Amino acid sequence: MSSEQAGNKTINFMGAYLPATVLSVVLLIASITALTVNGLKFGLDFTGGAQVEVSFSQPADIPEIRKILNDEGLVNPVAVLFGSDSEVLIRSQGAMSDGGETSLARRLAGVSANAALVSVDRAPRDRGNYAQSLTFSGVSAADINDSVLPAKYFGSIEVSSAGSNVVALTENSLDTAYTDELLDVLAAKTGTDVELRRSEFVGPQIGAELRDEGGLGMLLALAVVMMYVAVRFQFKFSVGAVLALVHDVIIVLGFFALFQIDFDLTVLAAVLAVIGYSLNDTIVVFDRVRENFPRMRKSSPVEVINTSLTQSLERTLITSLTTLLVLMMLFIFGGELISGFALALIVGIVVGTYSSIYVSCNTLMWLRIVKEDLMPPVKEGSEIDEMP
């Protein structure tokens, strides 16, 4: 197809390649700034923390449960339905002992205005079945009784003076004690029976390992993409494809850093999916560009690229819009567990559609793509061999 045949139906995409380049640079600078200043707000999968699954005897009121968890002093608590409308997954970026310290401080305030919890340590190994050692200041040994450390939660207790402080050895740790106490608080404030199904702690060392492996996975994916496109098309195409992918990933990460949205493994999976989605769209455009260069011999590279983008525009818009419709439904009705995944894909697909049109093709313009770049190299002596 020649540029004359394309006629007025061809959209002049590359007429805006300079403003588009400026827009991309601005978005990248804003995203990198957000990542540098705010950083990503890593979720429980990366930071470590407590995770408790509880069952309510009646459908759970999630907003009320979240308010209770915040009042109890847990660090960035999250409560989501899990499996049914009465099963709730509670997650906190800190340990359950964070809530235990808040609850203990309330009880100490009833004893003395100067009472405070000084430290929480492991109990000495030679002290039998005691799990933890709690050191208090501003109180006497007689003050540390069942009203401060309820036996219902802490088990057996041994209290002794240590200089100006008081040390209490407890059978149950603050984590275990507060997990049991939290069940009672939830039951009392929601008016339902609450049963503990599962309680665990994800250590930060596991989170760091997952974070590092996820980052290496993205870098490996970009390297493989660059090699594939270079072999399938040409080196200039591979540079355009990788720059488009890097552009998409940085902007998605910057969006999450700017608005401080939890970044967990589901969001990381969405970022990797954005790489695949954006690459697929870019490959479709590049394939048209490669096909049209030999067909439109008298046309300039700008005309070839505009014609290729116009021919693939309908397919790009239909694919993107139908995918976005599904993701919007997931974001609105899918619940909090999957909202981050859906949001990352929504942002990624919008940015990826834009980058497939402008970032990848703009790179071809900046690298001055010409018809000869796509022609196979002529072997030495081939012209002589073709002579009669």
Rank of each mutant, 00 (worst) to 15 (best):
T323A: 14
E336Y: 00
I318S: 04
N280G: 13
V224Q: 00
R295H: 01
V289D: 06
S300E: 02
V284K: 08
N306D: 14
A269H: 11
A344I: 06
F235W: 15
I305G: 02
R288E: 01
L216N: 11
S312Q: 08
V274F: 09
L321V: 15
I251T: 12
L309S: 11
Y228H: 06
V271I: 15
V347F: 13
A223S: 11
L345N: 11
R288G: 05
V239Y: 05
A257N: 13
G340A: 10
I305T: 04
M296C: 04
T266A: 15
R297Y: 01
L219H: 05
A273K: 02
F233W: 06
G240S: 03
M329L: 14
F263V: 12
E209V: 02
N306V: 00
L343D: 09
A223M: 14
G215K: 10
V304N: 02
V289N: 04
V252S: 12
G215T: 11
G207I: 10
L330R: 03
P301G: 00
V304K: 03
F333A: 14
E291V: 07
L258I: 04
S278Q: 08
G215M: 15
L219D: 04
I346E: 07
A241K: 09
A269Y: 07
G240A: 08
I346N: 04
V267R: 03
V242T: 14
F331P: 00
A270G: 15
D287Q: 07
V271K: 10
V302N: 00
D264H: 09
F235M: 12
V285P: 04
V239G: 01
D281K: 10
I283Q: 10
L309F: 04
I332K: 12
V249Q: 07
L245R: 11
T307S: 12
A270M: 12
S320T: 15
K298L: 04
N292W: 07
N280S: 13
L343T: 08
E336F: 07
L258M: 14
F286T: 02
L272K: 13
T323W: 02
L222C: 09
I250D: 09
V202Q: 10
P204I: 08
D212H: 08
M328K: 00
G203K: 13
D281G: 07
S300V: 00
I275P: 03
A257F: 12
D281P: 08
T323F: 09
E336D: 14
V252M: 13
T282R: 05
Y277H: 13
F255R: 03
A241Q: 11
V239R: 05
V249E: 05
F256E: 10
I261T: 13
Q234W: 03
L279R: 06
I305Y: 05
I318L: 15
T310F: 11
N306S: 06
I318V: 15
P294S: 05
V202P: 00
A223E: 10
L327A: 14
A244I: 09
V284F: 08
V274L: 11
L243S: 07
L245A: 11
I250E: 06
L210H: 03
L345M: 15
